[in-house]
Amino acid sequence: MKNSVLINSVRFLSLVLAQVLIFNNIDFMGYINPYPYMLFILVFPFNANRSLYLILAFLTGLTIDMFGNSGGIHAAACLVVAYFRPIALRLTFGVSYEYNAIKLPNVSFYERLVYISSLVFVHHLVLFSLEVFNISNIIYILKKTLFTGIFTSILCLMFNILFSSRRE
């Protein structure tokens, strides 16, 4: 238990710092900034207390918002991801995740890809809708969601594979 708290705190700090100091300044092709900090929400222990998880997701988003001066858009997007994660888990891994049998380092590449990218796109859609906040720019929102989503998914997958060294 203590170990898990420590690991998650370290992960939170390093992901937020990496996001704020590096990934917010990438500006690939002028406007694409990936958001790999959301890996913290994606790999948070599946069996953790639900309310605690929601609050932590909210605080993660709010920290990014504080650095980016973006109001509450990251907080809202993270909250939506945290709330709908069980659905994504059930769709990807079937019902077996409910018995705590799933450990992300052990699942196949394909399942990992589906799980991560589906939640990344949900996150980005909420994020950019709130950022632009104008329904007439829907094409711009979708374009930004698609390109940034691809970038973020690749980065999240890479980090996830790199840092999950535990093998059976």
């Binding site: 929601l54 609050i55 909210f58 918002d65 504080m66 001066n69 109001g71 709330y83 709130l130």
Partner: peptide
Amino acid sequence: LFAFLFFISLVFTIQSHSYHKSKFVNS
């Protein structure tokens, strides 16, 4: 809890879209 926190973040977002309001979360 979800609805409550989501409401808070929406309030922050709407504040950030109207610059006359004083912002609570800023850098």
